[in-house]
């Protein structure tokens, strides 16, 4: 039901629109993190460090549902839908191609919403340990969440022994996406 944005929208307007989408999305990741059992038992410094390292990766998982591989469109969180072709004009082609690939791979696993949410929690606590003070506490939390995810997935699909390993293989994909693309530029209008 979202119409494709008119071609008359300037590159600048699209860039601003794309940039603005990230602000509420990041705030939602912060709220999501606080709801992860055990996350707020970490020191505040470690909570902040994990969020700084892992939010981009959590957003990549979250944004998967906004990608339509068949139509090759992306729907931003403000409701605007853009074709991949129009977004290439902003120089985002490489990032979006990588995200389409990732979305297809993750989408093919057919996760239920609660499995996806638990996977996002695992992604966050598996983020880079640079700057983390109590590494032991973070690793214990990661172990607990991975165990919970494994139990959830294998109890629902006892005959599919490959799904959980395939899901964990998406973690290095996300790190690569993060390393390659988190230095991309956003632009915010100064009022």
């Amino acid at each position: 039901s979202c119409p494709v944005a008119p071609a008359s929208r300037s590159s600048q307007e699209m860039w601003e629109s794309f940039s603005q989408c990230f602000t509420p999305a990041v705030k939602e990741v912060v709220e999501f993190a606080k709801s992860i059992p055990g996350f707020q038992t970490l020191t505040q410094q470690d909570q902040v460090m994990l969020l700084k390292s892992g939010t981009f990766q959590v957003l990549m998982v979250r944004f998967c549902s906004l990608f339509d591989p068949k139509e090759r469109t992306v729907t931003f969180l403000n409701g605007q839908t853009y074709s991949l072709a129009s977004l290439r004009a902003l120089g985002m082609g490489v990032l979006l191609d990588a995200m389409f690939d990732f979305s297809e791979k993750l989408g093919s696993l057919g996760l239920e919403p609660d499995e996806m949410a638990l996977f996002m929690a695992v992604v966050l606590v598996s983020a880079d340990r640079c700057g983390i003070v109590d590494v032991g506490a973070v690793e214990q939390l990661q172990e607990n969440l991975i165990k919970a995810l494994r139990t959830l997935i294998t109890s629902r699909r006892p005959d599919d022994t490959t799904l959980f390993p395939k899901l964990l293989l998406r973690l290095p994909d996300l790190r690569t996406l993060n390393n390659q693309h988190s230095d991309k530029l956003l632009a915010f209008r100064i009022d």
Partner: peptide, 25 residues
């Protein structure tokens, strides 16, 4: 005149997180 503030996605994410935790101190 400068009309836009430009920053990396990583810096923008970092800024929002720092603001959120400072607000909730």
């Amino acid at each position: 005149p400068k009309t836009h503030r430009v920053m990396t996605l990583a810096d923008h994410i970092s800024h929002i997180i720092t603001q959120d935790f400072a607000r909730n101190q």
